[in-house]
Structures are given as C-alpha cells and as structure tokens.
C-alpha cells in the first residue's frame, strides 16, 4: 500500500512538471513574433540595427518571464517536491 502511495506521489509530480512546461508555448510564440518584427524593422531601416536589437533582447527577456515561472515550478516538482511529499506521507502514517 505504501509503495502505491509513493508511486502516485512520484507519478503526480512528474505529470505536474510536464504540465507546467506548457507555459513554454506562450513565450515561444511571443518571442518569435518579436524577433520577426525586429527583422522587418532592420530590413526597412538597416541603420538602426543596434537600437532595435537591444530593445528586442530586453523585450524578449521580459516576455520569457512567464515561461521561466513554469520552468522553476517544473524544477521544484522534479527535484524538491517528491521528497517533501513522501516525508509528509510518512509522518501522517505514523
């Protein structure tokens, strides 16, 4: 019975980590749009390449934040959460 419970905890953590990484879709689309528009702008006005590039990188990194929240949660679910949940389970069984 205990093995089953621990198995459910580990499986749930793994599935949760996978679901958390769905957050990567949004920043991917957003950054792709930003880079496409930056390429268009550079093509239209090659002289402002430096300004456009630095603004684009700043914007990309800010857009990346939501994806990184998902990444941090996935990392926590894989490396930190299972141990803690199993400890809580073992304490409650006693």
């Amino acid at each position: 019975m205990l093995e089953l419970a621990i198995g459910i905890i580990l499986g749930g953590c793994a599935i949760g980590a996978g679901l958390a990484m769905i957050a990567g879709i949004g920043p991917g689309i957003g950054e792709g749009n930003a880079v496409a528009k930056a390429c268009e702008a550079i093509g239209r006005q090659p002289e402002c390449k430096g300004d456009v590039t630095s603004t684009m990188i700043t914007g990309c990194v800010i857009a990346e934040t939501t994806g990184l929240y998902g990444l941090v949660i996935a990392i926590l679910l894989i490396f930190v959460a299972p141990k803690q949940f199993v400890n809580i389970l073992l304490e409650n069984i006693k």
């Binding site: 929240y69 941090v72 990392i75």
Partner: peptide, 10 residues
C-alpha cells in the same frame, strides 16, 4: 530573481 536564477539553473 526568478528570471536570472531560472536561466542559469536550467
């Protein structure tokens, strides 16, 4: 902090 640490850690 999450942005910086998440990038390097990943």
């Amino acid at each position: 902090s999450f942005r910086h640490y998440g990038n390097i850690l990943s």
